[in-house]
Design a binder for these strands. Structure first.
Lengths: 110, 110
DNA sequence: TCAATAGTTCAACAGATTTTGAACTAAGGA
DNA sequence: TCCTTAGTTCAAAATCTGTTGAACTATTGA
């Protein structure tokens, strides 16, 4: 049982930018970047919004090809698709993550 | 007589990403990047939409701090705020421009 | 002065996005 | 089995965006 993800070639630049042009989703990506290698479940992000709302934002990130979501029991393990993004749009993710360092929502989880 | 621009510190990452998360505006930025140093007036972009619509998109770009618009007679001279963007978000603009190389709307003007 | 050119503003509309709560599914532990 | 935990789905509401045409301003050239 696994959720639908776009393949690397289907990841679209305008869509990636539009999806990251949102405080909440940018904060999620910033958080994932700071904890790369550690599997994250949705509840890590409850600080950023309601359960329902997070479900919505996490789906947007997955559908845009920015994150990968693996099902593990009742949890989802969420990670950045860094390899695919780096291959498709070199330097983009890094520059965004660096620039997102001090966004307000992310400060909350420091 | 000059139009309102945000100062460099006011340029916000989420807003820049949201504004660039649109085909038309991404195409405008791609076009500006290919012709850096040459002053562009709005009518260069008529291929991308109606006069009214371009006015809307160009205002979004200016208000987000992505472009600078100078008034020159009845024309506007539009340029990328590359220096400010590079200082604020190093590497971001370059990676976006590189990645935007093959977006559909831009192909039209080649 | 008059007409043409370059672009803006406005109000309206259609459609997309975000947010919410209630009801739901599915797995895991007692 | 029953309860809890983790997250999804759905429909509704509120808001935001993009697009349009008509009317407008301001500059330029004849």
């Amino acid at each position: 049982m696994s959720l639908p993800h776009p393949i690397a070639d289907q990841i679209s630049l305008p869509n990636v930018l539009a999806v990251l042009g949102d405080q909440t989703r940018l904060a999620i990506v910033g958080y994932l970047a700071r904890h790369e290698g550690v599997a994250m479940s949705c509840r890590q992000f409850l600080e950023f919004g309601s359960k329902t709302n997070l479900s919505y934002h996490l789906a947007k990130l997955r559908e845009a090809g920015i994150t990968r979501t693996e099902v593990s029991g009742t949890s989802r393990l969420i990670s950045l698709r860094r390899d695919d993004l780096d291959r498709r749009f070199p330097g983009l993710l890094d520059s965004i993550i660096k620039a997102a360092h001090d966004i307000p929502l992310l400060e909350r989880l420091k």
